[in-house]
């Protein structure tokens, strides 16, 4: 049964010292699906993503990715299959490494040959001109940096992308470009996405299904259609949806 899912999580629990930040969380994502996780700060949504990416080793429960039960410490093969894009492109790129260095590193780690062509192709895929290849991050705009971060994730040709608020540090016009890019790449390469965001409109646009989290628990799983119809079952999901519609003056 687990083999049908690209990602399946059963009774995931994460604690940092005394605080229990993810509680009995279970969900499954089909291959090629785009799955959203939304919630407010402290809801545990990013923690879940970090567990999936193997960046957090203090958890219990069962995590299956591409039909394989995942140990706490992941092997190299895992990182070829699943890559992560972080929130802040100002913090997630090494300031003293050129775009070329950044993209060459994962290839060197995995001993991939033909790095030259792979780097050019990755840059092309994310719409960066080849003239940017030897630029440093400070010579790039926010949107261009996030493209580099996406290119770094894609250069190993993974099947799963874990996206942690990939556009929340960007202006809305740049956000549109990055979201379009992510959509196009997903259709082209049949990628599976997990997108963590606090922005319901972004998740509604990008995902087929989503999970609303609060205080470390999954409150409600719904389809994008339910979200668009403003018809969640739980009070908290409804409250979140209303709050995201903007300010309403009483009376």
């Amino acid at each position: 049964m687990t083999t049908q899912h690209a990602i399946s999580v059963e009774k995931l629990n994460v604690s940092f010292g005394d605080s229990h930040v993810v509680k009995d969380l279970s969900f499954a994502v089909a291959p090629g699906e785009s799955y959203g996780i939304v919630g407010e700060s402290g809801s545990g949504k990013s923690t879940v993503l970090r567990v999936l990416a193997g960046l957090n080793r203090d958890w219990s429960g069962e995590v299956d990715i591409l039909g394989k039960r995942q140990p706490k410490l992941r092997d190299k093969a895992f990182y070829r299959a699943a890559q992560m894009v972080f929130q802040d492109p100002y913090g997630s790129l090494h300031p003293k490494k050129t775009v070329d260095d950044t993209l060459a590193e994962p290839l060197a780690i995995h001993g991939v040959r033909d790095a030259e062509a792979k780097i050019s192709r990755a840059m092309q895929d994310v719409g960066l001109p080849t003239s940017f290849r030897f630029r440093y991050p400070h010579q790039l705009s926010g949107g261009q940096r996030q493209r580099v971060a996406i290119a770094r994730a894609l250069v190993l040709e993974p099947t799963i992308l874990l996206l942690d608020e990939p556009t929340s540090a960007l202006d809305v016009s740049i956000q549109a470009e990055v979201l379009n890019l992510l959509q196009a790449l997903r259709h082209e390469r049949k990628l599976t996405y997990i997108l963590v965001s606090h922005d319901l409109a972004v998740v509604g646009h990008m995902c087929e299904r989503l999970l609303v989290m609060q205080f470390g628990r999954g409150v409600e799983e719904m389809t994008a259609a339910t979200l668009a119809a403003r018809a969640p079952q739980t009070a908290y999901a409804q409250q979140l949806l209303t709050a995201s519609e903007g300010f309403r003056r009483a009376g």
């Binding site: 809305v172 016009s173 956000q175 549109a176 470009e177 979201l179 379009n180 959509q183 319901l200 409109a201 972004v202 509604g204 646009h205 990008m206 994008a224 979200l227 668009a228 403003r230």
Partner: peptide, 20 residues
């Protein structure tokens, strides 16, 4: 108009967002 157009909107889903 461009700024408003490139926001994802739950009520008007589009395959591709407009860019500025």
């Amino acid at each position: 108009r461009g700024l408003l157009g490139c926001l994802p909107d739950l009520d008007h889903p589009r395959e591709k967002l407009a860019t500025l």
